Computed example of a mutant assay.
Amino acid sequence: MRTLPEPAVRHWDFPRGIASAALMLRFGAERGLPRDTLLDGSDLTADDLADPVAEINAHQELAVVRNLAAHLPRAGIAAGRHYHATTFGVLGHAFLSAATMQDAVDMALRYLDLSFTFTGPTAALDGDRLVISLHPAGLPDDVRPFLVERDLAAIHTVIGELVTGEVPVLAVDLAHAAPPDTSDHEEVFGLRPEFGAGRDRSVVDASVLARALPLASPEATALCERQCEDLATRRRRKPGVAGEVRRVLEHSARFEETMPVVARALGISPRTLRRRLTEAGTSYQALLDEVRADRAAALLPGASVEQVAAQLGFAEAASFIHAFRRWYGTTPSNYARSRGTSGG
């Protein structure tokens, strides 16, 4: 079994199609919520919603979600069940045409910014278990439980569609408190989640990754992947303020730039940059960590821990090791060994 790729993004502030916002509007309408109520603060128009190729920013969809969650705070699981492979457009067709479930998961992670996620999902193999973790720390408190449940239910709904059978879920942990009724959770996951767990994740028997998918087509996969790459390349040119900060940091030699230096490079004040990053659900430190984490993973196969620590601007290797463990859940040396290198 191959290792799983790192996700294409570790944040939610990326451009996205209209399909998810439109789905949330239909979901709310079925429950008696007026469209105008759900669109409040989103700046979305009737023309946007009628255009199947319209692209919006993450804050516009988040506004719709916030309005929906305000009226239906416990409907996250029910909303997530409305997401199907086809909801994701060309990315969803790439899932459907994949040879195995692992190929579909690989595609999802490589093109995560073509999805509608807000919770930064990652996937990792732990022995014979597949651990799907959500990372919603940057989300506003008023939408976090709703979006965690929506995204996790959507992931499991799509997996179930792809394998056309029962998904072998071993455990589900959710950080928020249990709702009065967990029947929707039990129907989606096949068990009652552990609430108040301090983390958001599901654990699935890794054997699901080897399952052959019934609609597999190498020709369709190749075509979908090319279209995904073209779409991702175009969208990644419009990254928003968080992406602009990442761009500056990615061009840093040793990550010595402070937030005022980056703000000046972007032509805005540090206070404005801090506010915009807060609105985007992130922070300068979080972005610095993301870029450092990606750079560390790229450098480790050919450099020692001490060399990578210096390259990333850490004063000492011990500080880097501590940070790396927080990013990846293991030490740099173990990470390098798992990829067939020593990591010094």
Rank of each mutant, 00 (worst) to 15 (best):
E6P: 07
P7Y: 05
A8L: 13
H11T: 14
R16I: 05
R16V: 02
G17P: 05
I18M: 10
S20F: 15
S20M: 06
L23M: 13
L23N: 11
M24N: 03
F27Y: 08
G28H: 01
A29K: 07
E30G: 06
E30M: 06
R31N: 03
P34F: 06
D36R: 13
D48R: 08
N57C: 04
H59D: 12
A63Y: 03
R66C: 03
L68S: 01
L68I: 04
A70T: 09
H71K: 04
I77R: 04
Y83Q: 09
T87I: 02
F88M: 09
G92M: 10
L96G: 00
A99Y: 11
M101L: 14
Q102W: 14
A104P: 05
V105L: 14
D106L: 12
D106C: 10
L109P: 01
L112C: 08
L125P: 06
S133E: 10
P136A: 10
D142Q: 15
P145K: 08
V148K: 14
R150K: 13
L152K: 06
H156L: 15
I159D: 01
I159P: 01
G160I: 11
G160E: 07
E161Y: 01
D173N: 11
A178S: 04
T182D: 01
D184Y: 14
E186D: 06
F189I: 09
R192L: 01
F195H: 11
G196E: 04
V203N: 07
S207C: 11
A210N: 08
R211S: 05
A212H: 13
A216G: 13
A216M: 07
A216S: 14
L223G: 02
R226Q: 10
L231T: 04
A232K: 09
R234L: 05
K238Y: 13
P239L: 02
G240L: 01
V241R: 15
G243D: 00
R246T: 05
V248N: 10
E257V: 05
T258G: 08
T258Q: 09
V261T: 15
R264L: 07
A265K: 15
S269W: 04
T272V: 13
L273G: 05
R276L: 14
R276K: 08
E279S: 09
E279L: 10
T282C: 05
Y284T: 00
D289M: 03
E290N: 05
A293P: 03
A297M: 02
G302H: 12
G302K: 08
S304G: 15
E306H: 14
V308T: 15
A310K: 15
Q311H: 12
Q311C: 11
A318M: 10
F320D: 00
F324W: 10
R325H: 15
R325W: 02
W327Y: 15
Y328R: 15
G329V: 11
T331V: 06
P332I: 11
S333V: 14
S333F: 13
S338H: 13
